[in-house]
Design a protein around this nucleic acid. Structure first.
Lengths: 362, 362
DNA sequence: CTGAAAGCGCTAACAT
DNA sequence: ATGTTAGCGCTTTCAG
């Protein structure tokens, strides 16, 4: 009646016990378990029966030791509480489970040493693959060695597929990113189309390719319109809402006229909104704001935040697909997939549009 | 110079190779690796040197097979995207890492079959422990067998510690919960103290102890004031913001006067706020709203949402401590820890209080 | 179609 | 203090 849960027993039952009970050899049991070879119907029955009777369950660690596979992949991200990652993690999890993989999640808190440590540990555990949103600061010298080591991670004599998430770390590694530059350019173009002239920019850390590319998009948009770039209008945050708040305060304190601000992510944008509002300005009448990523809080704040939508679900899916692709053939050449993002216009740039709270994804 | 990353190699190097290189026995290597026995300085040196030279790294899966320990715990939650869990997961992760444990996270999407499947798989993997926020519906008969099996989970001849998170599943299991009943009572008392008489309640699923207890707190508060309970004022949601929205719409459609609503969690409360506002009522002038959990979005919405604070960090910490406690002695009697919650008053009940956006935790 | 046996890499009891 | 050896539970040649 109840499922074959070894619910009470104390003695571990192994393949050996099953073999004995079924009166067959140990290898026969293994073969019916894995379908590795054809086993005659009668024996098959007996084995199944014995498995049932004994409540046998395979031991994955022994199997892993033999097979070299753990059926587990790891996802390493800077923060598991940052609102951006959970949807991504969920997507990865869903896709991985579908293919029989388990997922372990690690949060580095932006500490590169912990990132390295995790990767080291993961190798020892014979992890089947790593999806990495690295917190490495590529602006620091001597970083090349680490990046290089990532592309040649190997264990048990074979390479461990490693896929970069969100931010490409090097040309030799598979990666799935969004078209950060173009997305930001669209955002700034939108501001420009609204007639804004003094557009500030709060950047995500430019020590990462993501931050660099997004800022590049900002610059490109200005340049295209022949607007001179003013360093006074640019500042760099650290992703967090509070850093956005602080950056905006500083921008405001510089006494340069500002009628709009584009921001490297939604968290900082919301922090910036707070600073603007606290300083007594109106959004967007005095200063328009646009973020990046389209996380659910952006639909909740007042006024709702315009932003650039990033397809997190698709991103997780794609990353997992890249992992599968590389597991099948470790030698395929690295693939960089850039997902396209799209503008989401809300009230922080256009007061007249109807916007609604996102009541579904959290 | 560079860390001993086996960065390029192809041959797996085992303890055997180290032994040969150092010209010692395999067990000596093991002993210096684990400090299991005292090894003479010179040999120790030679072994360390060989490890260095060969870029040796322990193989955790082989070690696990032998030792029966994987140094990994699993956390199973209904949803990894729900805003409540990430802070909890982070806390668990932090504490676990400190003690040398890795954490695997699993989201069941509220599907009890997936929950069972995960647990089954985890047993095969010889997981060291499970922290479980179960999605089992205790109102369904035949559920006892499952709960019972949880308290006797065992593998490799020894029990697997299992700790219930957020919702106690049975007296035989360790659990860390919040004082749901009292917390809700305080919330409703607050509404009462504001002079509200027609207080509706949107419940979390009452098929779980958490939902039951919180509703009980609501009833207790009314009863204490001699206010008759009106079934028309009660309804049950499914945790999600959208369900809160729908529940509130239904409540409003019942044409019973309502001047306040207490809600089983913040997500539903925010959904309910949307419904109230959409229906043209003012918050809190016409209808006051209070939630539960104190997740960051509650500070962001307009008006900000009063709620009951739940210490997620402490919860993760406590759960992990319980795990450690039970690993050390599988036979200690089950411990139920109830964390106390506290009222957070914001503008959805008291317009005059100053509230600020939470800019720090997401 | 079935079984015997050799390890995967490691730990730990048991010699020496 | 050091070495020898027997497995942990499983997969997978290789024989029969």
């Amino acid at each position: 009646m109840t499922k074959g849960a070894n619910t009470s027993g104390t003695k571990p039952v192994s393949i050996k016990d099953v073999a004995k009970q079924a009166n067959v050899s140990i290898s026969t049991v293994s073969h019916v378990l894995n379908g590795t070879k054809t086993v005659s119907k009668p024996l098959q029955k007996r084995v199944m029966q014995a498995i049932e009777d004994l409540h046998y369950e395979v031991n994955m660690v022994a199997r892993s030791l033999k097979s070299g596979k753990t059926n587990t992949i790891a996802v390493i991200v800077p923060s598991i509480t940052s609102v951006f990652f959970p949807p991504l993690l969920k997507s990865i999890q869903t896709n991985a489970n579908k293919e029989g993989y388990n997922v372990s999640v690690f949060g580095t808190s932006g500490d590169i040493e912990r990132e390295k440590k995790y990767i080291q540990d993961l190798k020892s555990q014979w992890i089947d693959g790593i999806l990495l949103s690295s917190c490495i600061d590529t602006s620091i010298p001597d970083t090349a060695g680490y990046i290089d080591s990532l592309s040649t991670l190997n264990v048990n004599g074979h390479p461990i597929p490693l896929i970069c998430l969100e931010s490409s770390v090097g040309p030799k590694l598979d990666a799935v990113v969004v078209d950060d530059e173009n997305g930001t350019k669209c955002a700034v173009d939108h501001l420009l189309s609204l007639g804004r002239k003094q557009i500030a920019y709060i950047s995500a850390p430019t020590s990462f390719s993501m931050g660099k590319l997004r800022r590049k998009g900002y610059l490109a948009a200005l340049t295209e319109q022949g607007i001179p770039v003013d360093e006074k209008l640019m500042i760099e945050g650290d992703y967090s809402p509070f850093s956005g708040f602080q950056c905006m305060q500083q921008l405001l304190a510089r006494n340069v006229p500002i009628d709009a601000v584009a921001v490297g992510n939604d968290q900082m944008a919301i922090g910036a909104m707070r600073a603007i509002l606290d300083a007594g300005f109106r959004i967007p009448d005095d200063i328009a704001v646009i973020g990046y990523n389209d996380n659910f809080p952006s639909s909740l704040v007042e006024p709702s935040l315009s932003t650039v939508h990033v397809p997190k679900k698709e991103m997780g899916q794609t990353a997992f697909d890249l992992f599968i692709r590389r597991s099948k053939d470790p030698n395929v050449s690295p693939m960089h997939i850039s997902l396209s993002s799209s503008l989401v216009i809300r009230n922080s740039t256009v007061p007249s549009v109807q916007t609604a709270w996102d009541l579904h994804s959290w």
